[in-house]
């Protein structure tokens, strides 16, 4: 059987079968269906399909559900808030919007500070040895100053001579050596230490508040 050419009316047949059309529109459509064999067949199909699909869904104990829902949503219980304009996200826990979101990651400035400390300590070890001789002492190198809690992203290029004048005026962390002097093995070791340190730092050390200065002559 061919389909009805009136697509607009045919499109409303499921709503007629459902009974959700306004009375006037339903009457108009029923008049059309009565004169259209294709729509009559399609409406009959839709009504039987609707019955089958509805029967497939289990009958619920709605009263029991209502009681459980009202018990769970009584005022005073924690309320889940979601971003306005969106359906609520499905999450297993219920929290209020007033609870600040927890940040499980370590703040970037703390990592940067810890990394700076490690660099200073690593480079200072040869300088602090009692037997350090002028032969083994590092050569004077351009020094780098930067804010003690600077982000790694903001850290200037340590080999850039342009930053040298900042040493004298700065009260921040001063590194009296250059990374370029480190051997490949030492650099790799330093990077590994930095990686392990990143996982353990949880707070900004208070010692960073004080300026640290390491010079070729010792502390």
């Amino acid at each position: 059987m061919t389909e009805c050419l009136n697509e607009d009316l045919r499109d409303l047949l499921p709503l007629l079968a459902h009974g959700s059309l306004p009375a006037a529109e339903a009457a108009r459509l029923r008049a059309h269906v009565a004169a259209c064999a294709a729509c009559t067949a399609e409406l009959a199909s839709l009504e039987s399909i609707r019955q089958v699909l509805a029967a497939r869904a289990p009958q619920l104990d709605v009263s029991a559900i209502a009681m459980a829902v009202t018990a769970a949503t009584s005022r005073g219980t924690p309320v889940l808030r979601v971003v306005p304009g969106d359906a609520p996200a499905v999450k297993p826990s219920t929290t209020t919007s007033t609870v600040a979101p927890r940040r499980s990651w370590v703040p970037r400035h703390s990592i940067a500070a810890a990394a700076s400390i490690l660099v200073v300590v690593s480079l200072s070890i040869p300088l602090l040895r009692p037997d350090a001789s002028p032969d083994t002492a590092p050569l004077p190198m351009p020094t780098v100053a930067g804010p003690a809690v600077a982000s790694p992203i903001d850290t200037p290029d340590v080999t850039t001579p342009d930053v040298v004048p900042a040493v004298a005026a700065s009260e921040g962390l001063v590194v009296a050596d250059g990374l370029s002097d480190l051997s490949d093995a030492a650099l790799e070791s330093l990077l590994m230490e930095l990686e392990t340190l990143e996982a353990t730092v949880s707070a900004e050390p208070g010692s960073l508040r004080r300026p640290l200065v390491a010079t070729p002559g010792g502390l």
Binding site: P58, L60, A72, T73, R81, V82, P84, G85, P88
Partner: peptide, 21 residues
Amino acid sequence: GIDELVQDTFVRAFQSLDSFR
């Protein structure tokens, strides 16, 4: 577990009904 699913749907809905536009 459709009954449980329906119940959970209502609980979620009522808990966030303030955001319903």
